[in-house]
Write a protein that binds this DNA or RNA. Structure first.
Lengths: 365, 365
DNA sequence: GTGAAAGCGCTAACAG
DNA sequence: CTGTTAGCGCTTTCAC
């Protein structure tokens, strides 16, 4: 395989300088400070570079010298197929990517996932050539967060965990938003409500069937977001003067297209008198709707269903839900890293949500 | 803001070595070759590291030394909202991410996009600290490809462009797959076919309304994949002994949820006798179906609709389409980078596709 | 405009 | 098991 003038070994800034008999500074300037040398010389340098196959200053060496990597690390602990199948998470990533793009920064997906051991994942965090991290929706006891913090780089947390000292966060008021939609549902007259939620803890208990969560479990401190959303429902229930037992919480451990249906089934089995199924995520609600339809249960006539997130699919299908600005979350997280507040103090940005009154909630039959 | 024992400036391997009065090698070994020193010493080092806030060897410096960045660069020229709204593209990214994760490599989304100038985008490619690149579905004249090649790193191209010398590629046989589904449609008896396709060129002509593509345009060499799929239809048409004019090609420049409907409208206006709408992407087909329904045109009774990709939504809605293994494409692309063939020769991997006979194709009315 | 000197923080031989 | 010696390829004062 003979190619065109293959460079001896590998062209470097120094070899180029030697070839042209100019100083390394001059070559560096040609790439980084065009105004520091004559246009002709610059041209001559670029020509020689092309001839020698010199691709320009080595990014890694430059990073070492300038102490800037030009990239942001994104740490998502959830399995990738979780995140890539949840439109809300995806929108977040898209927003973050957009913001990075605008700032000319790369976005590095850090190889942290359930396929890998904690050790490997930590190594990946430690080995990431980035200027800062975004940690997306981690559980309160996420093992990677300490590792991220160990890097002493700027960090922005999205959604959860709450209360990471010295760290900025972008989030919504999950509790208030959920309370609002719960009040709406209660206002319609529902008194027996199923609440379908994502897993509340990092561990995956027995198998993977959804289970009814007992009050004990509802208090365990893991996923702050789910907890807050559940708390929002209880807030509304209490405000309406109802008993806590009006709510049947079902926890789904998996994140499949059918998970919501499975959870709905469990909820209805646990309490056949339910007239409303509230869900902490649209994907759950849509799946639950599919299930209900397959069972010939009419929505909203026989069953009210609500979601959370406001993903396009849900909006299209008229789901009554809470719309949260997922893309904007991503953008904000990026901006917090790219243009940190002057005073260097951590910031908490709480974004607005909106109750979307769709066609899936009505009075109980 | 007074913190706990804040390190003087910034702990480094050298400062740790000095502190502990051991050689730098020993510290390095503690992190990279645990078997090269006693367990106690290693422990002692880690303890001191924690105390000084030393996060372990600097990734960038290590990369410079080892000549490995531990990350793969992904170059997608399409606008991000394109890619993030196309489930097939997304599946590809998920597959690639999965493969990177398994290999312990990061995945760097390179800031190349329409928001940025060619110059900025090139700079991003040149500045990416990666060990190789994946270029996803670029047009034949994509301006970033030469820049990627300039880096002299391993490159894997996905789908297109074809014929990049010395570069491996993962793809499917678009032409044969499309021919197959076209033959199926023709076999049902259709003789006037609308073919809805994504944009064929990099530029965006007048505005953004879909347009009927003239034969001239069909020959312009830009997006190889679209071209091949169109060619597959013409193959089938020719094999059936029909005239080329049996096909009305409509090109959509945008990539919105409604683009397929808009293209369908244009196609039907151009030739009201159409009995089938074939699409080069499921997203187009699904949107076209929505449009048809809104116009009271029944599928497949009054209009046959077919897609391409086999995205979950399409499968769920019973679309007749070609299923391609998007996730596997991503995995393969990653593997080609992580475990390159021994002989170093470029490889072309052609993945299998499958015709899915759904519920949206029938005999013409 | 250009060059010389001094590292950025680390790892990889190779000796001891 | 530990230390010594050399850089990896680049940018950045600071003189000239």
């Amino acid at each position: 395989m003979s190619r065109s003038p293959e460079p001896r070994r590998h062209a470097t800034l120094a070899s180029l300088a030697a070839e042209l008999k100019v100083s390394r500074t001059t070559i560096s300037n040609a790439y980084n400070r065009p105004d520091q040398l004559s246009a002709e010389l610059r041209e001559r340098i670029f020509t020689a570079a092309k001839r020698l196959g010199y691709p320009g200053p080595d990014p890694v060496a430059r990073s070492l010298r300038t102490r800037r990597a030009g990239a942001v690390g994104l740490v998502i602990t959830e399995p990738l197929n979780y995140s890539f199948s949840d439109p809300a998470a995806l929108d977040f990533v898209a927003g973050l990517a957009e913001s990075c793009e605008d700032a000319g920064q790369g976005l590095l997906l850090v190889a942290v996932g359930p396929n890998r051991s904690l050790e490997d994942g930590s190594a990946a965090v430690l080995a990431a050539g980035v200027d800062g991290f975004v940690v997306y929706s981690a559980s309160d006891d996420d093992p990677y967060l300490p590792v991220v913090q160990q890097r002493h780089l700027p960090v922005v947390v999205v959604d959860q965990p709450k209360d990471v000292p010295g760290t900025s966060r972008v989030c919504i008021d999950d509790r208030a938003a959920m309370r609002q939609i719960a009040e709406y549902v209660l206002g319609l007259g529902h008194r027996e409500i199923g609440l379908l939620t994502m897993r509340l803890g990092l561990e995956r208990p027995d198998g993977s069937r959804p289970t009814v969560a007992d009050p004990e479990r509802l208090r365990t401190p893991h996923f702050h977001v789910q907890r807050e959303r559940i708390a929002g429902v209880y807030d509304a229930v209490a405000a309406a003067g109802l008993d806590e037992r009006a709510v049947t919480v079902v926890e789904s451990y998996e994140h499949l297209p059918t998970s919501g249906g499975a959870a709905a089934e469990v909820a209805l089995a646990a309490n056949p008198r339910l007239t409303a199924l509230m869900c902490t995520a649209d994907v759950l609600a849509l799946s639950a709707m599919d299930y209900l339809r397959s069972r010939g249960i009419y929505v909203p006539g026989q069953m009210t269903v609500t979601g959370f997130d406001g993903i396009p699919d849900a909006v299209r299908r008229g789901l009554t839900t809470v719309v949260q600005p997922s893309i904007e979350k991503g953008r904000r997280a990026g901006r917090l890293l790219h243009e940190p507040p002057r005073d260097g103090l951590p910031v908490i940005e709480v974004l607005d949500t909106e109750l979307l009154r769709g066609r899936t909630a009505g009075a109980p039959s």
